[in-house]
Design a protein around this nucleic acid. Structure first.
Length: 559
RNA sequence: GCCCCCGUAGCUCAGCUGGAGAGAGCAACGGACUUCUAAUCCGUGGGUCAGAGGUUCGAAUCCUCUCGGGGGUACCA
């Protein structure tokens, strides 16, 4: 099949035409050119009345090109008319918008592409110069193996999975990794907590460690503890055993949630040589100093507001040092980019890490950090503070018992990662039947039901049948243009790290289809008309399935 | 004190590399199932975009300040 039009081909044709035209008509230096290329030239208009594609670059360039926007717009119109694609209309609106309308010549291609081409929503943006995929590692959740995962971890896992999928669609090779802090003070504290719990179980009169871990799981671990470990009072041994047991449990819960990692990287894998390497590199680069018997990193000289301790006065390596060594390790593994999703309690760590890798001489932009903001549990209108060390939190498992993973994921992904979320269990349960995720899944299930019915009745549209586009009207066009936008939504969602754009889009698309379905019969009408409507419906199904898939949400064929 | 996030409809939130008339869901009210899934659809209300300045042809979006909510903050992670 030759060169079917999609958003990608249309965008590329328009972009090239505009840039060529501007270059020939105006004196544009490389700086200007790069600025222009950074703009999104082809936009989805805010109102459908304006058209199907909007170009606003004329207004943005007015100042630089020293010409009124309307004049530049005229020039852009010429460029668009010569781009090799025929549009239904090309108009200028004040003060310098260029609005395009798509004809069915393009939209029909898009419908076929959506159905037939698995790569429909894929791009080649995250590629190296030689065309090889950019390798990107996404690290997320990475909760300490000192207790069960909580609701914020659930949010981070949903986000990490969706983001990984989105980046994959942009052409990158993505690896999902979980960093296990299986060494350090917190693990010792965990071991001490378990040991103490066991002693108390045995009737010993001992004091619980300050800031120790609490909760039923500690008591359970105490009961299950190996006799030798207990007899020897082997803190290190208990720590190794308990943390691995907890980690396995975390892995199981995540798998139940539908999130699997490519690699679990343990802090204990990091060698002394690697730690020394970090320290030596920092020392060589004059980013290290000693004060109060502790070793500090001069992060304040690299963009952070303060310096941090890497080695405590009693010789312990801090988490900061471990994480820097871990990141050097990642860097040596030759990832082109690394993205960390951190919880809200790591705000300070974010600035430290960004400054730290800079101090180590790693190029800027290699590390990107996203903070998955907090999730507050609301009960009877009051916010409950969550905290592992407060011994008060909703575990991820409890969450899943109340609300299905599909609903949880959608709920988390429907909001900006940086936004705080108030999670009201009562509301989540009560409205679960009116939840947007069901609304979207239902649209998909309806279409799959149509497909089954059509197959059964022998009236299914034959593969690659060219439908009569004259049978389509405005109603169909409104849906087809949404299908047309899908690759662009995926792109904006991925590149802007905004999963909520995709959830919003899917919700909207499902709504348009539900409306269409109610007003129009797809089967049991004139054969050619049925084929035309089937094509449209199935393209919507393809998009919904793909979209939910990217988000890590299931697309059931029956509900 | 300092740093970060947030403040948009009754509620929960989109929209923010400046673009066209401010959106969605929920909640409220009134309608639609002999027909492919009513987990649906149709209709009705609802806003000083926290406030004040500034930049601009144009500001919910950018800058400054103020107020309010949350988080972080030098030897835990």
């Amino acid at each position: 099949m030759q060169n079917l039009h999609t958003f990608k081909t249309v965008e590329q044709a328009i972009n090239n035409a505009i840039i060529d035209h501007l270059k020939s008509r105006y004196e544009i230096n490389d700086d200007d050119l790069n600025r222009i290329k950074r703009y999104t030239l082809v936009e989805i208009p805010s109102e459908k009345e304006y058209g199907d594609i909007a170009i606003t670059v004329a207004m943005r360039l007015a100042k630089h090109l020293k010409e009124p926007p309307s004049k530049i717009a005229e020039s852009i119109v010429k460029a668009v008319e010569g781009c090799g694609i025929t549009f239904e209309s090309v108009d200028i609106a004040e003060p310098g918008f260029v609005n395009l309308r798509l004809g069915w010549n393009i939209l029909l291609d898009t419908l076929y592409e959506a159905i037939n081409n698995r790569e429909y929503s894929c791009w080649d943006i995250l590629k190296k110069n030689d065309g090889a995929p950019l390798s990107i590692q996404v690290e997320f959740v990475s909760a300490n193996p000192t207790g069960p995962l909580n609701i914020v971890n659930a949010r981070a896992s949903a986000l990490g999975l969706a983001l990984s999928n989105l980046l994959g669609k942009m052409g990158a090779e993505v690896e999902k990794e979980y960093f296990v802090n299986d060494r350090g003070r917190q693990i010792d504290l965990l071991a001490e907590s378990i040991l103490t719990a066991k002693k108390i179980e045995d009737g010993e009169d001992v004091r619980y460690p300050d800031e120790g871990y609490k909760g039923r799981y500690i008591e359970e671990l105490a009961s299950e503890m190996n006799k030798d470990l207990y007899r020897m009072r082997d803190i290190k041994g208990i720590g190794v055993w308990a943390s691995e047991k907890i980690r396995k449990e975390q892995e199981r819960v995540l798998r139940d949630f539908g999130v699997e990692f490519d690699r679990w990287y343990h802090q204990s894998y990091i060698t002394d040589e690697e730690y020394n390497n970090v320290l030596n590199t920092l020392r060589d680069r004059n980013a290290l100093y000693e004060a109060d018997k502790a070793v500090w990193i001069k992060t304040s000289e690299y963009g952070d507001v303060q310096d941090w301790v890497l080695i405590t006065s009693d010789g312990r390596y801090t988490y900061h040092l471990a994480d820097l060594a871990y990141h050097i390790n990642k860097y040596r593994r030759r990832y082109d980019r690394v993205i960390n999703i951190l919880g809200p309690d790591h705000h300070a760590h974010m600035a430290m890490m960004l400054a730290g890798v800079k101090a180590l001489g790693i190029p800027e932009g290699w590390l990107e950090i996203i903070i998955a903001q907090q999730v507050n549990i609301v009960e009877k209108g009051k916010r409950l503070k969550m905290g592992k060390r407060l011994g008060r939190y909703i575990t991820m498992e409890e969450l899943m018992k109340e609300v299905s993973p599909d609903v949880c994921k959608f709920f988390f992904l429907d909001r900006a990662p940086s936004a705080h979320i108030d999670f009201d269990f009562e509301v989540a349960k009560k409205t679960s039947l009116e939840n947007p995720v069901f609304y979207i899944q239902y649209a998909y299930a309806r279409i799959e039901s149509l497909r089954r019915e059509a197959t059964r009745a022998g009236i299914l549209i034959p593969d690659n049948l060219q439908v009569n586009m004259g049978l389509y009207g405005e109603e169909e066009k409104e849906i087809a243009r949404e299908v047309f936008y899908y690759p662009q939504v995926v792109k904006m969602s991925a590149m802007g790290r905004k999963t909520q754009l995709l959830t919003c889009y899917l919700h909207n698309l499902a709504g348009k289809f539900h409306r269409y379905y109610t007003r129009n019969r797809i089967l049991g009408v004139d054969r050619d008309l049925s084929y035309a409507r089937q094509l449209l419906s199935f393209s919507v199904a393809s998009v919904i399935r793909d979209g939910l898939n990217v988000l890590g949400i299931s697309a059931p064929e029956r509900m």
